[in-house]
């Protein structure tokens, strides 16, 4: 399934872009620490199935371990290694307002009341809104370095590619549709639409990322 593969690769690319940005500029300016914390929570709650050793494939397992490891490493870079470049005063989104509703939603909508399915469902809902602190920060500063926008664009591309992936799977497989993932995935992709528009019309034309006043 080419869409899913490209989606995963674009997700990988986003992480490498972020690491590259932090390492080369030796700064995490413009990156929301809260969004990065949420991604660690998302990966750790989603990939609990690693502990059961009922693994899907080598690819699947390696990617899961990579996503958990790289997201924790990014927190280390932001909080310890390049701490002085991280400005919490503009990263003011209240993540309690995301965590609470996602916890409630995961208790209502899930595929089974157990320690794998509820955290899995929680992680799906949380991922769909995890980018909000980052977008909120962008909104507050009104502009961003090109590399930061490439990072967000790669994340957006990853989400967008999962939609044709689901259509493809719906047409070719008989397992039915993972409704929770699809609905949350569409919401998540929707959050990138505004950003994507400015990215395509400005950054890719060589202009600076600036929000209209």
């Amino acid at each position: 399934n080419i869409f899913r593969l490209l989606g995963d690769l674009s997700h990988l690319a986003s992480i490498f872009i972020l690491l590259h940005k932090i390492q080369t500029s030796r700064s995490c300016r413009g990156i929301s620490f809260k969004t990065q914390v949420l991604y660690v929570v998302v990966f750790c709650t989603r990939y609990l199935d690693l502990l059961t050793f009922q693994l899907h494939s080598f690819y699947n397992t390696i990617m899961k371990i990579f996503f958990i490891g790289s997201s924790v490493y990014i927190l280390y870079l932001m909080r310890i290694r390049f701490r002085p470049t991280n400005d919490p005063s503009i990263d003011t989104f209240r993540i309690e307002y995301l965590l609470g509703p996602c916890a409630v939603l995961s208790l209502i909508f899930n595929y089974g009341y157990n320690w794998i399915e509820i955290p899995w469902s929680f992680s799906i809902f949380l991922e769909s809104v995890a980018i909000l602190p980052q977008l909120f920060m962008l909104q507050r500063t009104g502009e961003a370095e090109a590399i930061t926008t490439h990072y967000i664009a790669a994340l957006g591309a990853y989400r967008a590619l999962y939609i044709p992936n689901w259509i493809y799977r719906y047409l070719t497989e008989t397992n039915g549709v993972d409704a929770i993932a699809v609905v949350a995935g569409i919401v998540q992709t929707g959050l990138y639409v505004d950003f994507g528009y400015i990215y395509f019309t400005k950054v890719l034309q060589g202009q600076k990322f600036e929000l209209p006043a």
Binding site: H56, G176, D178, A179, A181
Partner: peptide, 10 residues
């Protein structure tokens, strides 16, 4: 959605 398939997406 067939739960027996598990969550094979990342």
């Amino acid at each position: 959605f067939d739960e027996a398939q598990g969550h094979d997406e990342l």
